[in-house]
């Protein structure tokens, strides 16, 4: 922890200078959100839905290729889906309606369809969000959210979290090293008390650090809001580049709706 530049929150970030890296963060946020909206809006039971998913997949893979995000990175991003994969796999068993025989199992037809659709939609959205996280640094994302009018108090909280999360996790890591170098065994009775005390100490240290940071800021003239530098307007060409991902997905959806 802390060995790599960037730290805990930059685990998904891949440094680079691709066109996607250079886009303004708010453009990328809007693009990924719009893409997810298109994916989610696709009707589950339409016959053409699998083709639409294939089209969306092509679009997001193209974006990943332009951004220089390697397939391994994309696959690693999908790990967060695991709990819901289990849920989606259960759907064919618990959904009501007509049943079909698959490999000797009685499965619900609509459950199979829905489970598949849920998996496809979640996977596509996670892929797009992984491209966003891989090409945008945490601080940049904060600025993007700020430009998108996230309430300033929330932006400040987010800013402090981004700035100090590595300090806090570093502290946690040092406590673990200290614990384990004193022959701590997590399987022994009473281990919970030891780890719990560490977490309690971590809270106290974090909170006290917050108090010190606040005092330091007061002494530098903090009045409750942070000054912002001049904001450069995003050229409309950049918006067009960024929004080409959701626009492509939207074109796929529209084609499906018209022809399907």
């Amino acid at each position: 922890m802390g060995a790599r530049h960037g730290g805990a929150l930059s685990a998904r970030y891949v440094a680079g200078t691709s066109p996607v890296h250079r886009l303004a963060p708010q453009v990328k946020l809007v693009a990924v959100l719009a893409y997810a909206l298109v994916v989610v809006a696709t009707p589950v039971h339409a016959g053409w839905a699998p083709w639409a998913y294939a089209g969306y997949l092509l679009a997001v893979l193209a974006a990943a290729a332009v951004a220089g995000v390697r397939p391994g990175r994309l696959a690693a991003g999908l790990v967060v889906e695991t709990p819901f994969v289990v849920f989606a796999l259960l759907l064919p068993f618990v959904t009501r309606g007509p049943r079909v025989e698959v490999l000797g199992l009685s499965l619900s037809e609509s459950g199979l369809q829905t489970g598949g659709a849920l998996l496809a939609k979640a996977t596509l959205s996670v892929l797009a969000a992984t491209v966003l996280a891989a090409t945008t640094e945490p601080r940049e994302l904060m600025h993007g959210l700020e430009r998108l009018r996230l309430p300033s108090a929330l932006v400040q909280i987010l800013g402090f979290m981004i700035r100090y999360v590595d300090v806090v996790s570093g502290e946690l890591h040092r406590m673990r090293v200290a614990r384990e170098s004193r022959a701590f065994d997590g399987r022994r009775r009473g281990a919970l008390r030891v780890v719990g005390a560490a977490a309690g100490a971590l809270f106290i240290r974090s909170y006290e650090r917050g108090e010190r940071v606040h005092l330091a800021m007061l002494s530098r003239g903090y009045t409750g809001r942070l000054p912002r530098g001049p904001v450069a307007a995003v050229p409309s060409r950049d918006w067009l580049t960024g929004l080409s991902l959701p626009l492509a997905a939207g074109a796929v959806l529209a084609t499906g709706m018209l022809l399907g």
């Binding site: 805990a8 108090a153 400040q156 909280i157 987010l158 800013g159 402090f160 979290m161 700035r163 100090y164 999360v165 300090v167 806090v168 996790s169 946690l172 997590g186 399987r187 281990a191 919970l192 780890v195 719990g196 977490a199 971590l202 809270f203 974090s206 909170y207 650090r209 917050g210 108090e211 940071v213 606040h214 800021m217 409750g224």
Partner: peptide, 22 residues
């Protein structure tokens, strides 16, 4: 003090969610 204290507490929550508790 909301912003710095809530920010540090959020960092604490984030870190502690990654901890393994026996």
């Amino acid at each position: 003090r909301t912003a710095p204290l809530a920010g540090l507490t959020a960092a604490f929550v984030f870190a502690v969610q990654m901890m393994n508790f026996p």
